[in-house]
């Protein structure tokens, strides 16, 4: 226990206690200043406390958006890769070089007048597309497999474009199995041309020579400068011979051999109606 202060020192201490006292005005002013500082500190601290969950939510949202964007980007990239692969596989997407049909078939174009059917042939009714119902195959095979392919109403334009200006979508390739020779490999072979000629060939093979002639006439009008020109003349001569129209068959044979002596079908053409001679 400490001894009490002596009287003198106690008097001085008492005086100091009395003198060193803050006034009420100073107290009030000090509290006002403290209150203002605490209020200033409190204002930004409240959102700081609230910002934790908000920041967490914002981070989660940003993360989700980032993942979604990355997933979408990846999916798009994969789709592009697939499209590139398909593009590489599908030959129809490739732009096709204009076929030098005019150069190849220029002799045919020159002989177009002489290839017109003779009087007896021209007297036959033009079967057109309406002649095909009699043929089972023609009923099942569409005239124009391609939806954008030319129809009978487009024949004039089709004839004009056949020289190499046909639209790209009408140049869908035929499957090689559908054709026997060069047309199968030709990138400019049109499906409707192949289908039309196949109908004629089918009628010829089935012994329906009238139908075959009609189909060949239609094919000749639609694809006058087509790639089946020589085949069409051979088939036509064959059908005429089978129908007993020997003179017409011989005329066709002579005309063909005269105009195309070097054709790979020349020997076959020579065999037509030979026995009848």
């Amino acid at each position: 226990m400490i001894e009490p202060l002596d009287d003198e020192l106690r008097r001085f201490v008492g005086a100091l206690r009395e003198v060193d006292r803050p006034g009420e005005a100073a107290r009030a002013a000090t509290w006002a200043a403290i209150d203002a500082r605490l209020a200033a500190d409190v204002a930004p601290r409240r959102p700081a406390r609230l910002s934790w969950p908000l920041a967490a939510m914002a981070a989660a949202v940003l993360l989700g958006l980032g993942l979604a964007a990355a997933t979408a980007w990846r999916g798009r990239a994969e789709a592009n890769v697939e499209a590139v692969h398909q593009h590489a596989v599908d030959p129809t997407i490739h732009p096709l070089e204009p076929r030098s049909v005019r150069a190849v078939e220029s002799p045919q174009a020159r002989s177009g007048e002489s290839l017109q059917p003779g009087p007896e042939e021209s007297s036959q009714p033009d079967p057109g597309e309406s002649l095909q119902p009699g043929s089972g195959e023609s009923a099942s095979a569409p005239e124009s497999p391609h939806p954008n392919g030319p129809t009978s109403a487009d024949e004039p334009r089709g004839l004009e474009r056949d020289t190499g200006e046909s639209p790209p979508d009408s140049r869908k390739p035929a499957r090689p199995a559908q054709s026997r020779r060069r047309p199968a490999d030709s990138p400019s072979l049109r499906p409707e041309e192949v289908a039309s000629f196949q109908r004629a060939q089918a009628a010829l093979a089935a012994g329906r020579y009238e139908d075959a002639l009609a189909a060949l006439d239609v094919h000749g009008r639609r694809f006058a400068a087509g790639v089946f020109e020589e085949e069409r003349q051979v088939s036509r001569a064959t059908a005429l011979c089978k129908l007993g129209r020997v003179d017409a068959a011989r005329d066709a044979r002579r005309r063909f051999l005269r105009e195309r002596p070097a054709s790979h079908l020349a020997e076959r053409m020579r065999q037509i109606c030979r026995d009848d001679e």
């Binding site: 001085f12 201490v13 005086a15």
Partner: peptide
């Protein structure tokens, strides 16, 4: 009173902080 307080204040200022604060806390 003010003079006494000033004397004690000056005397306290002359002490080192350890002794001054011990006196202040205990006796003032």
């Amino acid at each position: 009173r003010r003079q006494a307080a000033a004397v004690l204040r000056d005397a306290l200022a002359g002490l080192d902080e350890d002794k001054r604060m011990a006196f202040v806390l205990a006796d003032i």
